[in-house]
């Protein structure tokens, strides 16, 4: 299973001791969230509210099946609202 450097937007950082990224082993978004929730329980409410996952610059919603390719840049962002 690939280990990813998962980058965090500012609202998540306080729950990861102020770090701007964390290392997580995950094949898909489901595993990513499961690991994040286990390792950083403070993130749970924000994850449950809905988070956008950027995979190599393309924004995905929190659909569990979305795969995280090895070496991909993973960036967590707030879920956007639109008009």
């Amino acid at each position: 299973m690939a280990q990813h450097e998962v980058k965090l937007w500012s609202a998540l950082r306080p729950f990861a001791q102020g770090e701007s990224s964390v290392r997580i082993k995950a094949r898909n978004i489901r595993e990513l969230f499961a690991r994040l929730e286990a390792d950083y329980p403070g993130m749970v409410p924000l994850i449950r509210q809905g988070i956008a996952v950027s995979v190599d610059g393309t924004l995905y919603r929190d659909s569990w099946d979305t795969e995280l390719p090895a070496g991909a840049e993973i960036f967590l962002l707030p879920r956007i609202q639109g008009g």
Binding site: W9, S54, D56, G57, L59, E73, F75, L77
Partner: peptide, 9 residues
């Protein structure tokens, strides 16, 4: 690298 974080495709 976009100003909001991720690298653009």
């Amino acid at each position: 690298r976009s100003s909001y974080g991720p690298v653009y495709g």
